[in-house]
Design a protein around this nucleic acid. Structure first.
Lengths: 257, 257
DNA sequence: GTTGTTGGTTCATTATTTGAACCATTGGTT
DNA sequence: AACCAATGGTTCAAATAATGAACCAACAAC
């Protein structure tokens, strides 16, 4: 693992839940030596990727990230162009909805809307990258990736998040087959306890998954009739975003083609 | 210069004007060896800080940046909380307005609004970091930084952007003195040809500059009466944001104290 | 078919990163 | 007031990772 990778990995420890981290804590979290973490953080701070409180010495994410994200969004307005679709899905479903972008082996949260229709709702942390094997969104992407890629990921380490997480490769492969035929993925408490997820992939022009849109509900609210409605809404939303982004849906995906 | 610094510096070459860069171009821009750039970009790509087009092989900024920027904005909503003030300044002035955050020796663009009141307007690139000695915003910050810091920057390399850029240290120090007494900074074509800038610093709780808000006009439109109006509007906007962020204005700053 | 470009790879040389031991400061406990 | 256990930060020989000149294959232009 190179030095750059180490430095970037430190940024992932910052989240909504843990927005400020001191040197000692970060050292423990990352498992690197204190001198190493200090040097890496100093490098990140010099370029504005993190900033350090002058008094308390804690680090937080820095303004450079805002600038670069802005450049990306000005150039490829993923978030802005998907917003109306996400809002529609939120209103129609009355549940928490989310948009992810695929980056290598993880899904990056881009936008989400937590519903106000119910007192209990699924909460999401904007800082949490999602691995592909455990969530509905992840399965939606995995199912339509090139086989070499999806196999590489399935052969890798499959973390167990809850005791419903599927970590058996052949069971996962069966799931993926189903997702491919239906064009939509589900995960019943596979990533977070009590959460039922439904998600559909968003496709690039070359018919490969680039992200996903989905719904996250408390699994107690997932009745069969709501499930049918949610699946239809989600699939339509994914198609809308795929179209908005100039993508093409592969012919294998679901009954709608 | 460490490896991490090199990797991060590569990201700065991406901007609205140049959103996609190939390996050879990036090698030329950065001045590192091709093998080095390739390895650094691979590291960045593996963590989603950039992504590579599968066909054309060009790199662009990646989704991880959106996630991390989102975490920062959810935690410290610099952009959202300053938006109304920025919009007010835009409407009242009828010119392009901008918000920067200070990160070490540079200002990072966070948000800006280009006016629709005039056919000619100042265009800003969301990707361009601003050095402190040449722009109104930079001078506004420099003037209120701790002297050790501002002196270190003044003693460093002072790039000449136009033939109006002030690069003489003692002239700059006189400017800063004026800025300190007036609480507001100006730059007549110092950073970009034809652009007249007015900006005021935003302060932290410990009365140090954390950013700036300002106006950028074509210098031909900068009449004396508009200048007075723009200065008053800008100063008020900076105070509003300082207050919104829980900051405190140092007693030395301007006549309003 | 030749030429110049591109992205990408290799591996001995070189330079950076690493981490155990260290220090100074702070805040809580007795 | 003395003590202890944290904290952030520094040092430098040893270990490791980064470097870059030379290389290859693929493509486009002429």
């Amino acid at each position: 693992m190179g030095t750059v990778d180490k430095a970037l990995s430190l940024l992932d420890f910052f989240s909504e839940r843990r927005p400020e981290i001191g040197l000692s804590d970060l050292t423990r979290l990352a498992g690197y030596d204190k001198a190493t973490v200090l040097r890496l953080m100093t490098s990140l701070a010099n370029r504005g990727f993190v900033e350090q409180d002058r008094k308390t010495k804690v680090y937080r994410l820095g303004p450079s990230l805002l600038r670069l994200a802005n450049v990306r969004e000005m150039t490829i307005p993923s978030k802005a162009s998907a917003r109306p679709v996400l809002e529609h899905l939120s209103v129609e479903s009355g549940e928490t909805v989310h948009l992810f972008l695929l980056a290598k082996d993880y899904l990056e949260p881009i936008d989400f809307i937590e519903t106000s229709a119910h007192a209990t709702r699924v909460h999401m942390d904007a800082g949490e990258r999602i691995s592909l094997h455990a969530s509905a969104s992840g399965l939606a992407c995995l199912a339509f990736m090139r086989v070499e890629e999806s196999e590489r990921i399935l052969q890798g380490r499959l973390e167990r998040f809850t005791n419903h997480t599927i970590t058996d490769v052949s069971t996962l492969q069966k799931c993926l087959k189903k997702v491919r035929s239906e064009g939509i993925a589900e995960s019943d408490r596979g990533f977070e306890e009590e959460v039922f997820g439904i998600a559909a992939p968003i496709f690039s022009p070359d018919r490969l998954p680039v992200g996903s849109i989905g719904i996250a509900t408390p699994h107690t609210r997932m009745t069969d009739s709501f499930r049918q409605k949610a699946r239809a809404l989600t699939q339509q939303a994914a198609m809308d975003i795929t179209r908005a982004w100039g993508g093409s849906i592969p012919t294998q995906a679901g009954a709608l083609q």
